[in-house]
Amino acid sequence: MIDTGDRLRIYPFALGSELEDAAKGQGYRIPMGQAAGWLFFTSSSAPGEIAVAATARGMEGPFFLSVAHPGAARELSAPAATPCAKGHAAAFAFPTRDALFAAVSAVYRLSISLPTLPFEEFLRETAHLGDTEADRVQKVRVGQDRFRSAVLNYWNSACPLTGITVPELLRASHIIPWSRCENDQERLNVHNGLLLSSLWDAAFDAGLITFDDNGVAVGSPRLTRAEILALNLDNAAPLTLTDDHRNRLVWHREVVWCAD
Rank of each mutant, 00 (worst) to 15 (best):
D3S: 13
G5Y: 02
I10A: 14
I10W: 11
Y11P: 03
P12L: 08
L15C: 04
S17C: 12
L19Q: 01
D21L: 14
A22M: 05
K24A: 15
Y28I: 01
M32A: 08
A35M: 02
A36G: 07
W38H: 00
L39F: 00
S43I: 03
S44F: 03
S45P: 03
V52P: 01
A53E: 04
G58L: 11
E60P: 07
P62S: 05
A68T: 05
H69K: 00
A73E: 02
E75N: 13
S77W: 03
S77G: 06
A78D: 00
A80Q: 09
A85S: 01
K86D: 11
K86L: 05
P95Y: 06
A99M: 06
L100V: 05
A102F: 00
V104D: 01
V104F: 01
S105K: 14
V107S: 06
Y108V: 04
R109V: 07
I112P: 06
L114M: 07
T116S: 08
T116A: 07
L117G: 02
P118L: 01
F119H: 15
F122C: 10
T126M: 01
D135C: 08
R136G: 03
V137Y: 03
K139M: 10
D145W: 05
D145G: 11
R146S: 04
R146T: 03
R148E: 08
S149E: 13
S149K: 14
S149L: 06
Y154E: 10
W155D: 07
C159L: 06
T162F: 12
I164V: 14
E168W: 04
R171I: 15
S173D: 09
I176M: 01
P177Y: 07
R180W: 10
E182L: 08
E182W: 05
N183F: 07
N189M: 04
H191R: 00
S198A: 15
S198G: 09
L199A: 12
D201A: 15
A202L: 11
F204I: 10
G207H: 10
G207T: 11
F211Q: 12
F211N: 11
V216Q: 15
V216C: 13
A217G: 08
A217S: 13
V218I: 15
G219C: 12
P221D: 04
P221N: 13
L229M: 12
L233P: 06
D234R: 15
D234K: 15
N235S: 13
A236T: 09
A236E: 10
A237Y: 09
P238E: 05
T240R: 15
T242M: 02
D243I: 02
D244N: 11
N247R: 15
N247T: 09
R248M: 03
V250S: 10
R253H: 09
C258A: 15
